[in-house]
């Protein structure tokens, strides 16, 4: 492991395993750090890029995705990975989640889903279970939780998977597959928060999690897998549709400038009398 200085996560936090799995995946894929751009928002999970080798843009809460879209459009040759929390990607950044998936750029979108707002100390997030107590509502969460993977499938994301921080090796494999996938790959990662989520613990997940052997054969089947909730929680690839190619980007733009000749043409054509 690299020396990344002091780490701001609680001992036992699921983010450590996710960090290790991602670090391992990038190393095994032999992508040089200089060609990796990680974008994140704000939250505990959003600190992940600080503890990995790569370029990063640690932006605003909820805005990791549009930054990644901008980076990818500008530099299609870079490996661009979004990594942030459930509050960041599904809550504050919900609109970007919807529309970035419609773009289907070659991005990897990772969400460390601890079903809680960690950094702000325990409020409900969009994925908090019904009835779970939280500081804003002692009667428990009254809102139906968002099903991010069902949403991603409905929105047309071609690669949709779930991982679990408690199964690091399996997660590493998923992350490798997601990064290598050409198109937007969405991975929701079950991430126990030992400080603020006393319900969805390691033990809770271990009891329920099971591995999928094969992805759903189409969107409908993938959606059925995504609907499995409660006592059984599938992990693995739900959908992998390689028939769709990612959206074309504009081709090479970086270090390829508009020329005075281009401007002369434009001037004559759009502004001149000729």
């Amino acid at each position: 492991m690299n020396d990344h200085g002091e780490i701001a996560w609680c001992p036992g936090c699921g983010n450590f395993a996710i960090r290790d799995a991602l670090e391992g995946a990038l190393a095994e894929l032999a992508i040089p750090p200089r060609e990796i751009v990680l974008t994140s928002g704000i939250g505990q999970a959003a600190k992940m890029p600080q503890y990995l080798a790569g370029n990063y843009f640690n932006g605003l809460h909820g805005r990791a995705l549009p930054v990644a879209v901008g980076v990818k459009l500008a530099r299609p040759e870079l490996t661009v990975i979004v990594v942030s929390g459930d509050g960041c990607n599904y809550g504050e950044g919900g609109n970007h989640f919807l529309h970035s998936l419609r773009r289907n750029l070659d991005l990897t979108v990772l969400t460390c889903n601890n079903q809680v707002y960690g950094l702000t100390k325990g409020q409900s997030s969009p994925t908090t279970d019904l009835g779970r107590m939280n500081m804003f509502d002692p009667r428990g969460n009254e809102n139906e939780p968002l099903n991010p993977l069902a949403l991603a499938i409905v929105l047309g994301a071609p690669f949709v998977a779930r991982g679990f921080a408690g199964e690091k090796e399996h997660l590493k494999g998923l992350l490798k597959e997601a990064i290598q996938f050409r198109g937007t790959a969405v991975v929701d990662i079950l991430q126990p928060c030992v400080s603020f989520n006393k319900v969805n613990t390691y033990a809770y997940y271990r009891k329920r999690v099971y591995r999928l052997d094969v992805p759903g054969k189409d969107r409908r089947e993938a959606l059925e897998i995504a609907e499995i909730q409660g006592d059984r929680i599938p992990v693995g690839v739900f959908l992998k549709d390689e028939s769709r190619s990612p959206r074309e980007t504009a081709g090479r733009l970086f270090r390829k400038s508009v020329t005075p000749g281009d401007m002369e043409n434009l001037l004559q054509k759009w502004h001149g009398a000729a």
Partner: peptide, 8 residues
């Protein structure tokens, strides 16, 4: 901002 950071 992402595109500017990336070089454009």
């Amino acid at each position: 901002l992402g595109a500017s950071y990336a070089g454009l």
